[in-house]
Simulated scan of single mutants.
Amino acid sequence: MRTAIWATAATVAICGLVGVTVWKVYPGAPDNAFAECGGGASSAAIGGPFELVNAAGETVTDADVITEPSLIYFGYTFCPDVCPLDMVRNAEAVDILAEQGYAVKPVFITVDPARDTPEVVGDFADTISERIVGLTGSPEQVDAASKAYRTYYKAHTEDDPEYYLVDHSTFTYLTLPETGFAGFFRRELSGEQLADQVQCFLDAG
Rank of each mutant, 00 (worst) to 15 (best):
S42F: 15
D62L: 07
P106W: 00
D116Y: 08
E119W: 07
V111D: 05
E36D: 13
E119Y: 09
A33S: 14
R115Y: 11
F124A: 08
F78D: 06
G101C: 10
A56P: 05
N32I: 04
A35W: 07
E68Y: 00
I66K: 02
A44C: 00
A93V: 00
A44Y: 01
E68D: 03
T77H: 10
S70N: 06
P80F: 11
A56C: 08
A33G: 12
D116E: 12
A103T: 14
V94C: 13
R89H: 07
D116I: 11
T77M: 06
N54Y: 00
L52T: 01
V107C: 03
I66R: 02
A125Y: 11
D123C: 02
V111R: 01
S43E: 03
G75H: 06
Q100Y: 08
A91I: 04
A45M: 15
D86H: 00
D112K: 07
E68P: 05
V82L: 13
T117H: 02
Y73W: 11
A45S: 15
T117P: 07
A45K: 13
P118W: 05
G48I: 01
G40T: 09
R115Q: 12
F74N: 01
A35Q: 12
L52H: 04
V120G: 00
F50D: 07
P118S: 01
L85F: 11
N32T: 02
K105A: 15
I96M: 10
G47Y: 03
F74T: 02
E92N: 13
E119D: 15
D62S: 13
S70E: 09
V121Y: 03
D112M: 08
N54Q: 04
V65A: 07
C37Y: 02
P106G: 02
